[in-house]
C-alpha cells in the first residue's frame, strides 16, 4: 500500500468540516482544513495534496466556484482532483445571485450534496484518488 494520502477540506463551516474530517481520518487519510478561500488557497500553494474537498457557498456567494475555476486555469493544479461538496442542489445552483454557478460551468470531478453518508464520501474520495493516479501514470 502506498503512503498516507493527504487531503484538504475548504469549507467555511468548521463544524461541517470537522464532521467530514472525522470520517476521513478514521479511514486513515491525513486531513488539513481551511475555513476560508484565502487560507485554502495558501494551503494549496504550500502543500501537495492528493484531493481537494471544496464547499461551494462560502463568504459572499459562490466563492468555492472561484477556487475551482482558478485551479482549472493553473497548470500546477490541473491534476488535482476536486470533490465539490455543496448544500445547494444542482437544479438550484444556477439561480443564485452573482452569476452562473451551475456545476456545469465548472470542470470539477465530482459533486456531492451535504450532508454526505460516510460510505458514499469514502467511496468517492478513494475513486477520485485512484483515477487521478492512473492518469498520472500514463
Amino acid at each position: 500500500m502506498s503512503e498516507q494520502k493527504q487531503l484538504l477540506i475548504i469549507d467555511d463551516d468548521p463544524d461541517f468540516a470537522e464532521g467530514i474530517k472525522s470520517i476521513l481520518v478514521k479511514a486513515k487519510y491525513k486531513v488539513d482544513m481551511a475555513h476560508n478561500p484565502k487560507d485554502g488557497w495558501a494551503a494549496l500553494e504550500k502543500n501537495k495534496y492528493d484531493l481537494l474537498l471544496l464547499d461551494v457557498m462560502m463568504g459572499r456567494g459562490a466563492e468555492g466556484i472561484m477556487i475551482a475555476r482558478k485551479l482549472g486555469k493553473d497548470a500546477k493544479f490541473r491534476e488535482l482532483p476536486v470533490l465539490i461538496i455543496t448544500s445547494i442542489r444542482e437544479q438550484m445552483a444556477f439561480l443564485f445571485p452573482g452569476g452562473a454557478v451551475h456545476p456545469n460551468f465548472v470542470d470539477v470531478d465530482e459533486l456531492i450534496e451535504k450532508p454526505v453518508e460516510p460510505k458514499l464520501l469514502l467511496d468517492k474520495v478513494s475513486a477520485l484518488i485512484k483515477s487521478s493516479e492512473a492518469k498520472k501514470k500514463k
Binding site: 463551516d13 464532521g19 470520517i23 448544500s87 450532508p115 454526505v116
Partner: peptide, 29 residues
Amino acid sequence: RENFAAILSHELKSPLSALQQHLFGLAAD
C-alpha cells in the same frame, strides 16, 4: 427574493448539514 435562496440555504441548511454529518460520523464510529 433572489438573495433569500442563498441566505436560507446557508443559514438554515448549514447547521443542519453539520449536525447530520456528525450524526453520520458517530453512527459509523
